[in-house]
Computed example of a mutant assay.
Amino acid sequence: MEGGMDFLNCLDLDMSVQILMYLKDPSDLVRVSSVSRSWRDFVIANGLFKQLCLRMFPQLSRVAHVMELNKCGAKEPVEVGSSYSMEWESLARDHRVYATLARVCTSFHDEDCISKAISASSTDNYPDESIENTLQLADIVPPRAFYWSSKGQKNPAVPETLIYKLKSEFCVITEINICPFEAFFQPGSPIYSAKSVRFRMGHPKSPNDLGCHLPGDPLPSADDTFIWTYTSPEFPMAQERCLQNFRLPEPVLCIGGILQIELLGRVQTQEVDGLFYIWFVLYTPFHSLVAYSSMVMLWRPY
């Protein structure tokens, strides 16, 4: 506007960055970048899109390096010219990648994002009561019922875990739905729920850690196989045969595509042996991001 004032030229750097970081919607930051060349350069030079992504998804804090991909694979900048031009190209590359990531991660479309079952901490009767049964669209398909059952325990405090591979290595998880199984074929139709549930997300320590693993095969300790980048609060479960919704406090970016469900505490014994069991029929996590193939993120090791 004629006679207007560019506040970026009037305020010091820290104050200008602080003002622009109040923007929470990536589209607003895109509009800022479109005001003028100097504003776009300011956004790039100060990594505002990267800061926005880190604020939305703290799981990105372990990213050590970003590369763009082209049709031939990873594309690294050619080291020619001055160190300033090389630094600027690196900043511009990060700007493009994080701007696209921020836009895609906030373009929510609910979708079931489970790819396959990896393992259960225990299974009572394999394969009839395998974790793979939790991926069935219905819990009863005549002439049989589909559900996963843990092994029986005398101690009701013994937990169980279910581990799944998601459809993409980049998924934004907003909620997870779980349904305990009602054993209609047992006296009194008991419901084998857990007392509470907790969710962890992360990625394998090595791309070869999963290999050709089958759900019925023993898996080494999950903490030895996976790196967990997010752990949810603990949610109480109802002793009811219904799809129970567990909405996470904030959308979580699962990088690596591994989801673990921790089932904490047991409430129901089986009449035939007096042991505590947990039985589940299905669950559905929702996400907002499909596979994203225009970047590579390299992680800092622990």
Rank of each mutant, 00 (worst) to 15 (best):
P220Y: 12
P233S: 08
F235V: 01
I255L: 12
E262D: 11
A194E: 00
V252H: 04
I191P: 01
K195F: 02
S168D: 08
R198A: 11
G216I: 07
I227M: 13
N208W: 13
H203Y: 15
L264G: 01
C254P: 03
P236Q: 11
G211Y: 07
G211R: 11
G256T: 06
W228P: 03
G202S: 06
L214Y: 12
R200W: 09
P190R: 08
P207L: 05
T229H: 08
Q260F: 06
L253V: 07
Y230H: 14
H203P: 02
P190K: 10
N177I: 00
P190V: 09
E182D: 04
K167D: 07
I227D: 08
S189A: 15
P249K: 08
I261C: 06
R247F: 04
C171T: 15
T174V: 02
A238F: 01
Q268W: 02
L243E: 07
R241W: 09
G202R: 03
E262G: 05
K167A: 13
F199V: 02
A238Q: 15
I258V: 15
A183M: 11
F170Y: 15
P236H: 10
D223T: 12
P180K: 08
T174I: 01
L253Q: 07
G216V: 07
P236L: 04
G188C: 03
H213T: 02
E234S: 13
P251Q: 02
P218G: 00
P249G: 02
Q239T: 14
S196M: 04
P249W: 09
P204Q: 11
Q186F: 13
K205W: 06
G216Q: 12
A238P: 00
G257K: 05
C242G: 07
S232Y: 02
Q268D: 02
K167S: 09
A238G: 03
W228E: 04
V172C: 03
Q244N: 13
L214W: 07
Q186M: 14
S221L: 12
L248I: 10
I176L: 09
F199T: 00
F181G: 01
P218R: 04
C242M: 12
S189Y: 14
V172E: 04
P233N: 09
P236S: 14
N208G: 05
D217E: 15
P236I: 01
S196D: 04
V252R: 06
Q244A: 11
E182Y: 05
Y192L: 05
L219G: 01
T231E: 12
K205A: 03
F170W: 12
K167W: 04
V197H: 00
Y192E: 02
A194D: 00
E240H: 09
C212W: 05
C242Q: 10
M201A: 14
E262R: 08
E175I: 10
A183W: 12
I178H: 01
I176A: 01
T225M: 12
L214I: 10
P207R: 13
F246K: 10
P218L: 01
P187S: 13
S168R: 08
I261Y: 08
E182I: 08
S193W: 03
L214A: 11
V267M: 13
P251T: 09
C254D: 07
F199C: 06
